[in-house]
């Protein structure tokens, strides 16, 4: 029943959309017929391209790179789950002018390839409007941006023009050709609104798939809360019990755990935990025995945040770190 209703709606909407303000008339033609129609597409595209480009970023993961797009002034970024690869990971965002910014991955949906990243450096960032009303229609003229093949300052992000050639519930397809490095980059309508995020391609040039913004809207809160949603092919959940801290401890007679050894280059060492420190609390819970700490860590996974309340030579200290991979 639900499916039927949805079908009816989909059929009724194009009529409504045609009347939507700002929608270029050429979208409601089967094809551009003459120079005037072609120029209508060109004029719309060139008038919004600068703003769209300023908000398009490269996501540098050290091991590779993808793309993304800023959707709020304080630096919220939409990208693909197979780009962010996990939650609460540190990544670098590169702006069109080459400026590098620190950022952290928020939530992702591993079934639909949707993910969020937040720039953690304070600032006012160029951003674009998200089409939250799902107004894009089959055949609409669209353009894609992305750092094809990686960041190249001399070139900038690459713009491609095409049409929406296939629409399904959690995937839209365009004939704007994509390539490695574009993943996570934005697909825009001719009004410069974000309608999709680049996800994957088929062998044919015409098969370029994007996650529609409706998928982001549906998952918005979970993504904002850094949740790892689903068990799909686009990201793998870190396994519980495989997280790594890198210290040895023993119960301390006056309470807490005394650190007896810290491994070199481990997450513990990087957080400046030292031999002799007394760990009193982990994420707000009192620490009493070594076994208790081990049990707690067993329930956690790589990337999970830890906050220790501790003392060193009687002085209180706090350590914030993330579990590494074993």
């Amino acid at each position: 029943m639900k499916r039927l209703i949805a079908c009816v709606l989909a059929a009724a909407l194009p009529g409504l959309a045609a009347a939507a303000p700002g929608r270029p008339y050429v979208n409601d033609k089967k094809a551009p017929e003459n120079r005037k129609d072609l120029e209508a597409i060109q004029t719309a595209l060139t008038s919004v391209l600068g703003k769209a480009r300023a908000a398009t970023v490269c996501i540098d993961l050290g091991q590779g790179s993808g793309s993304g797009v800023i959707v709020s002034e304080d630096g919220l970024i939409l990208t693909a789950a197979h780009v962010s690869g996990g939650v609460r990971k540190d990544v670098t965002v590169i702006m069109e002018d080459g400026k590098k910014l620190k950022a952290v991955t928020l939530g992702l949906n591993s079934e639909t390839d949707a993910a969020m990243i937040r720039i953690t450096e304070e600032g006012k960032y160029p951003f674009i409007e998200v089409d939250r009303e799902d107004t894009a229609r089959l055949g609409d003229w669209v353009f894609s941006l992305g750092h094809s093949g990686g960041f190249d300052k001399e070139r900038g992000s690459v713009v491609r023009l095409g049409r929406l050639v296939r629409m399904a519930e959690s995937t839209i397809q365009s004939d704007c050709t994509l390539i490695g490095g574009d993943s996570g980059g934005p697909l825009f309508d001719l009004q410069g609104r974000l309608i999709g995020i680049h996800s994957r391609v088929g062998q044919q040039l015409q098969v370029n798939m994007h996650v529609p913004t409706s998928v982001f809207v549906k998952n918005w809160d979970a993504l904002l809360k850094s949740e790892f949603v689903g068990e799909g092919p686009f990201a793998k959940k870190p396994e519980k019990g495989k997280g790594f801290l890198g210290l040895a401890s023993e119960a301390h007679p006056d309470g807490g755990l005394k650190v007896t050894k810290v491994g070199k280059d481990t997450p513990a060492a990087k957080a400046d935990i030292r031999e002799g420190d007394i760990l009193l609390k982990l994420n707000g819970t009192d620490l009493k025995t070594r076994e208790q700490l081990q049990e707690t860590l067993k329930e956690m996974a790589e990337g999970d945040p830890l906050e220790f309340a501790a003392t060193r030579d009687g002085k209180p200290l706090t350590f914030k770190l993330k579990l590494g991979a074993r």
Partner: peptide
């Protein structure tokens, strides 16, 4: 580079609700 996965099978696996633009009117 972070690759764009090739997912040829997914194209046809999205069910009957998908709409497709005839190739004559593609770019």
């Amino acid at each position: 580079l972070l690759f764009i996965p090739l997912f040829a099978t997914l194209v046809c696996a999205t069910g009957s609700r998908a709409q497709s633009l005839e190739s004559n009117f593609r770019t």
